[in-house]
Simulated scan of single mutants.
Amino acid sequence: MRLVHHPVLCNYYVTYRCNAKCSFCDIWEKPSPYVTLEQVEQNLLHLKKLGVNVIDFTGGEPLLHREIDKFLALAHELGFITTLTTNGLLYPKWAERLKGKVDMLHFSLDSSEKEQHDKGRGVACFDFVMQSIEIARKLGEHPDIIFTVFRENLDQLEKIYREIILPNKLLLIINPAFAYNEVASGDALTSEELTFLSEFGKRKYVYLNDGFIALRRDGGNHINNPVCKAASTTLVISPENELVLPCYHLGEKKFPISGNLYALYNSKEVKQLIALEGRLPQCEGCTINCYMQPSFAVEMNKYFWKALPSTLKYNYYKGTWKRLLKN
């Protein structure tokens, strides 16, 4: 049963450029412009009209954009919940200007060991993450640590939790790695490893969407009975100011926004593509977290119930439910 019939999230790619070269990502390889303030302002008004609640300013590395603080401030003023994930390299430079503008601030950290983390990210950024945590806490911010889980770093969860999360009273977001296109993410987690993650997710200050675990056990999205609602729950806007459908990772078609996102989203051609969400051949077996999370939230099925406890837990810790109520 569908509970929400409008998009709830916008993944707003302010640039594809990045100052890291993560082994499990290919975004940084793409040439890219930067979005403009005029485009963002116009699109945010239309996103509000469409019913979107959350704006994820993403990339690439979003802090490479020289006006990212203005984007966040504008979104916040319009009542959106804002989220931003960074590798930490530029956060110390931006911290003062970002203060109070990011509801869900995520620092990427995949190991408690500097060498292992930096190797996976392709640059020396471990020390910057540690510095960013210290600066954010001094400013009264409450960042999360987003931990991308592979088989080879599974043993790092306990160390991250004991050495970084608990002493700093941060939230640990467990993000199971996923493969897409030609980007490999290593061997799939075993049933025992998925059980370990599920149990770990029950700890204090830890967030793991158990819907992710259930979906992996079920072999991912199936095109004959799709759980993915990517195109109808999530708007993807590219640095070229295009609407990307059905999702960023497939990018089957890109539509120039041309100043009227609302009309474009409600156009016949876009609606036809939305109707194919989760049903395209490439959608078979998909487990991409950033599209499954909103998919689980809008339709009452087993994944909805699996995801609900962790969603309530996260919103309770972060207090984002207060901003949702205002909207």
Rank of each mutant, 00 (worst) to 15 (best):
M1C: 14
R2S: 12
H5W: 10
H5L: 15
C10Y: 00
N19T: 05
A20K: 10
K21P: 11
C22N: 06
K48Y: 07
K49I: 05
L50K: 09
F57W: 00
A73V: 13
H76L: 11
L78T: 04
G79I: 00
F80H: 02
T82H: 04
T86H: 11
K93A: 09
K93P: 13
W94L: 02
E96G: 11
K101Q: 00
S112T: 12
H117L: 11
G120F: 14
G122E: 00
V123K: 12
D127N: 07
M130E: 07
I135R: 05
H142W: 14
F147P: 08
F147C: 06
E152Y: 15
E152Q: 15
E158K: 02
P167T: 02
L171T: 11
G186N: 09
D187T: 10
A188M: 14
L189Y: 06
L189S: 03
F196W: 05
S198M: 02
S198T: 09
R203A: 11
V206A: 10
Y207G: 02
R217C: 04
D218C: 07
N221E: 03
H222G: 02
N224W: 04
P226M: 01
A231F: 00
S232G: 14
L245Q: 03
P246G: 03
P256Q: 01
P256F: 01
S258E: 13
N260L: 07
N260C: 10
N266E: 08
E269D: 12
L273S: 12
P281H: 10
C283H: 05
G285D: 00
T287N: 05
N289S: 14
F296I: 06
W305D: 15
Y317G: 07
Y317L: 09
T320A: 01
L324K: 03
